[in-house]
Amino acid sequence: MRALGNALGRHLGLTLAVLLFLLFYGVYNLFHPKGFTTAVLIQNTNESFALVMAAMAQTVPVLAGGLDLSVGAVMTMVNCLASYLLAGSPAAMLGGVLVCLAAGALAGFLNGCVVVYGRLQPIVATLATGAVYLGVALWLRPTPGGAVDQDLAWALTNDLSELADTYGWLDGETAWFQAIAWLPVPLLLMILVVLLVWLPFRETVTGRTVYAVGSSEPAAFMSGLAIDRARLAAFTLAGFLAGIGGLYLAIQTSSGNADVPQAGAYTLNSIAAVVIGGTSLLGGSGGAAGSLVGALVIRAISFNFRIFDVPPLVQPLFEGIVLLAAVSLGAGRVFRVKNRLQLMT
């Protein structure tokens, strides 16, 4: 029991984020006419996926002690690019997916180069590069449009049974498949990104160096760690994750849209999700899994606005109060420690 208490204490921010999500999403489903159904779950995960990817993308530079203000811009740029490439033969679409992910990673790598070799503060560097990426997005799509393969869009925005039926991968009557056929594809994609991208990166030497740089850059330097390589990797991974979000946004909407206000909203909400998920903006502690939950909290709050018909002008006020309370509770650990080194454990 004591071990459990210590574990919860070390991950207080994440614990509070999970509790907040369960509270807000539970209330939403209780008052929704079709609450606790697969249809509602599919709709909600579709609406949450892009923000989840933006939050995870923001997490990695934050862990290294910086902020990436280009996350929304990269997502928007890849969204516009995907609206040209996600059509045609399966091979062509696969190539388009790879090109989009490579474009996101390249944008992140360029961010890292400006920060590392230009020796600029990340918040300044990414503010500038973000404007460039939005310019590219506007050049690609001056007006919303595009043609995304409808089978692909349908399969990836529904449950596993629809995915299997669309491409004829499995016999729908198979007993073991029926047990999981209700699972939303976007939810599974979130889990796969955590398991196949974030966790392996965190366990690498470079991933651990990112944490070390965020905790104390001088100590990391004195330990002989490759600080520049860690920063480059952090921003590159951030661009890759933002690219996944932009790619899915094109699939979800079947179009590309260089929406500048939307890009800014994704960036700001990604920072809020990171903090709610228990990652310190000072760097060195937290993780992308917590940011995933933080993004879901933000979305769950907005879902409740629809149910309770909250006036649009009041929504930012209510959302801000809830987020401020969540961040304040998560920061409460700072006032309970006697030794500041305990914050790094």
Rank of each mutant, 00 (worst) to 15 (best):
S161N: 10
Q315D: 06
D68K: 12
L163D: 06
Q121R: 10
S83L: 09
T38F: 07
S48Q: 13
L81A: 10
T15S: 03
L51I: 02
L247V: 09
S270R: 11
A153E: 01
V78G: 06
V310P: 02
T166R: 14
F318L: 12
F31Q: 05
L20P: 07
V27D: 08
Q252W: 14
G135V: 13
T174A: 14
L86P: 05
L22I: 13
P218S: 02
A7D: 15
D228C: 11
A175W: 13
A82R: 00
I271A: 02
L12E: 09
M344T: 07
G224N: 07
T166A: 05
T209Y: 09
G104W: 06
I298W: 01
E319F: 09
S280N: 12
F201I: 05
T129M: 13
T157K: 03
L199S: 11
D165F: 15
D159Y: 12
V213K: 03
G35D: 06
P261E: 01
F308G: 14
P184L: 11
S83V: 05
G214H: 01
L134G: 10
S255D: 02
A272C: 04
F221Q: 15
I298K: 01
Y117G: 01
G104F: 06
F303N: 15
V114W: 13
I321S: 11
A326D: 05
N257E: 03
A87R: 08
F36H: 12
A17D: 03
A137S: 14
G88M: 04
P144W: 04
Y266K: 01
A17L: 08
V136E: 03
L140S: 03
L241G: 00
L140H: 05
A219W: 14
G284F: 11
T157M: 01
L23Q: 14
G277S: 00
L23C: 14
Y167W: 04
L63S: 00
I180D: 08
V322E: 08
L192R: 09
P144Q: 01
L16C: 13
A103F: 02
R2F: 15
C80G: 09
D149C: 11
M93Y: 05
L23M: 15
P144L: 01
I271T: 02
I298P: 00
A289G: 12
M222K: 15
V40N: 02
N111C: 09
T45P: 12
G172D: 00
P122R: 00
F21T: 03
A263L: 15
N79I: 09
